[in-house]
Design a protein around this nucleic acid. Structure first.
Lengths: 203, 203
DNA sequence: TTTGTTAGTGAACATCTGTTGAATAAATCT
DNA sequence: AGATTTATTCAACAGATGTTCACTAACAAA
């Protein structure tokens, strides 16, 4: 039944204990300041046991992240399974689900942000980009040839940016509001909108 | 004349040497695998000297990043200074300048990506978001109340996402193409576009 | 050029790291 | 159930870390 039949009980037990220890320590300490010794002492395991499973604490953190990601994917797929919840459209429902997932794991996301688990570079450069007045758009003729890879990365990081901003504000806003904001920003995208259809007819 | 009159020559000399040593080491080693001892031995300084200026190697890296960011801001401001380069419009020119800046520092950006200086979380979650088919948009009525903070973060991370995608592809694409792609994606934004004006008239 | 200030040196220290080996405990398998 | 496999322990190791100290060398200001 369960997805992991062959994994040794001891391994699961140990990994969970180490994960919990790290999470607990991250509540009060900067990620960088937490030592392997801290983790194993807090979890009451031998230091060698840690190294049997992980190379460094970042790897342990990634295990924790992996579980949260799993829930994110599940959350996203929910609207497609329960058609009754499709009040608006599928994207709107998915967007809500994504932000609801983050909201449900707000403690975790805030922990990641607070404990400086994600370091300086992307934060530094995106903060600088934020200052630049890129909002002022101009009129250009439409053209549909957008690189799908670039577009996917653009969209992914954009949503990630919304989550970061949300988290730095302490997750005060509601998931529904966040989803609405995302839809507002996406609204005029040509892909499936009436504008795209209209410009297609113009050809 | 110079912006830093009061800073001791020795400090500048030492910091530059340490920065260069780290950059050199990052060419061939994973960031995490580089030790403080490696850096000071390569720069031929005492280990205590390192700790006089930096707490950990991440702080040293941030100093390097700071210089690149400075160039990014300068690059962005260029179009506003030289009006002759405004072939299209200000945003288009700014976008080109940003991507030209990245292209000029492609070695640095690739170094950051390759050496895993930015760790798992944002990469992991955004890669997952990329898989979700968020591209399929739906028709909704326009409304202009977008949170400026959220929008700024959205845009900043979106562009950062383009740069990451670009870098992971080895910076094969040209800066002009990247700028064009950005403009394509922004094109239908309501803020200043003809669509916005049209929908305003509909009221 | 002298004087006060501070960066860099070298050495020492306790602690943490990453790895290893043999012994023990707990799991899995038949 | 017993036999086999393997996770965990404990101890030990060399190397790296982060900090401190007195010493010197280089700098800035007058």
């Amino acid at each position: 039944m369960s997805s992991n039949q062959k994994i040794d009980k001891r391994i699961k037990r140990t990994k969970k204990a180490l994960q919990n220890a790290l999470i607990t320590l991250m509540q009060s300490h900067d990620f960088k300041a937490i030592t392997i010794t801290d983790i194993v002492e807090h979890a009451d395991y031998n230091r060698g046991t840690f190294y049997k499973h992980y190379k460094y604490k970042e790897e342990l953190l990634e295990d924790i992240i992996e579980e949260v990601i799993k829930d994110l994917v599940d959350s996203y797929r929910q609207p497609y399974q329960h058609t009754d919840s499709l009040t608006f459209n599928s994207l709107s429902a998915s967007a809500v689900k994504i932000f609801e997932h983050v909201y449900a794991h707000a403690n975790f996301y805030q922990l990641i942000i607070q404990s400086n688990a994600l370091p300086g570079f992307h934060k530094r450069i995106t903060n600088e980009l934020k200052k630049l007045p890129l909002q002022d758009l101009a009129e250009i003729e439409p053209s549909p040839d957008i690189d799908p890879e670039l577009h996917a990365s653009y969209q992914a990081y954009a949503i990630f940016g919304m989550i970061m901003e949300w988290g730095e504000g302490g997750f005060k806003l509601t998931p529904a509001y966040m989803a609405d904001q995302l839809l507002e920003m996406l609204k005029f995208s040509p892909v499936n909108s009436r504008f795209k259809i209209r410009s297609d007819l113009e050809k």
